[in-house]
Design a binder for these strands. Structure first.
Lengths: 165, 165
DNA sequence: TTTCTTGCAAACTTTTTGCATAATG
DNA sequence: CATTATGCAAAAAGTTTGCAAGAAA
């Protein structure tokens, strides 16, 4: 479920950046490394910055922002919105037909990932019905994770603020 | 597809607010009216503010924010993230089993809505598989709308920034 | 009259940008 | 060496909050 990263990943990323004419600076290397090391963690830019800073204290937050923007434009990272006010990013996995999806616990905010291609027929149907050329989809399930379900009985009201439409 | 609002909607909202102990001020009324009048438009708080201000210039932006937060907590509005940097809100439709979903054009940013309950069996399956009590889901399809498809041939690169995982 | 709400301004948070300096290919 | 990238600090943009004055139940 949580794939580990290979040296192919790092090569793929570096090649793509080079191909687009970007220089490979130590700062960018450090940021790429951090993203590769944090698969499944859905880090914010600030969190990436904090990790990178440990190895290279001279690095600036603006550089991290600029690098993430750049990687996002190149589709090397995918943005994820978990409704806590800051954007989060994760490595775009090359091997996935579509991006994977997320189970978001509205009690503890834990995020599980899952792959599922059951959506493909729906995608096709919707495309035809609305004359819309579907390229990708994003799916999130909101609910209560196993641990939180054990802890206490869930109260139906509250916590709408963790979901989105 | 784009449902119009009935007086039942406004009664439902007002009753819910009253029931939760909130006072019904003219400011809140104006904001509720605006949201009811803008179904399908996915307004930002600032946009709601601009509309409300025309009728009641004395109203403050903070009041609009506070009212939206409050309505969101009461599940009267649903937050929607269309990746343009600001949160957007829409009326939570009472009659829907789940919230409706969105087709987002990555060229022109147009947002179409669609209802679909084909996801229910997937929801159930995922729930069992991951021991996750699913309460709701959010689904977005990203692609090219009919108009944009006509205009020009789509170039495969670019525009990843409009999508999310 | 008591409590909740408003408007304003200030504070905060996240993200972007200008600019001089430094590093890359 | 020409160009691109960096770090810093300042600016933007979106959202939240403190507080005194005002309105609702």
């Amino acid at each position: 479920m949580t794939p580990t990263c290979t040296s192919e990943d790092i090569q793929r990323i570096i090649n793509k950046l080079k191909k687009s004419g970007y220089k490979l600076t130590p700062q960018r290397q450090a940021i790429v490394d951090t993203i590769l090391d944090s698969v499944g963690m859905h880090l914010t830019v600030e969190e990436i910055f904090d990790i990178v800073k440990k190895k290279r204290p001279e690095i600036g937050l603006a550089t991290v922002y600029r690098t993430i923007v750049l990687m996002h434009e190149e589709n090397l990272v995918t943005r994820l919105d978990l409704k806590d006010g800051t954007a989060r990013y994760e490595l775009t996995r090359e091997d996935e037909h579509h991006t994977h999806h997320h189970l978001v616990c509205i009690k503890c905010s834990q995020v599980l990932e899952f792959m599922d291609d059951l959506l493909d027929p729906i995608e096709e149907e919707i495309g035809k019905k609305y004359n819309f050329k579907v390229l990708d989809h994003s799916l999130k399930f909101y609910g209560i994770c196993n641990e939180c379900a054990k802890e206490e009985t869930f109260k139906e009201e509250t916590k709408y603020d963790k979901r989105e439409g």
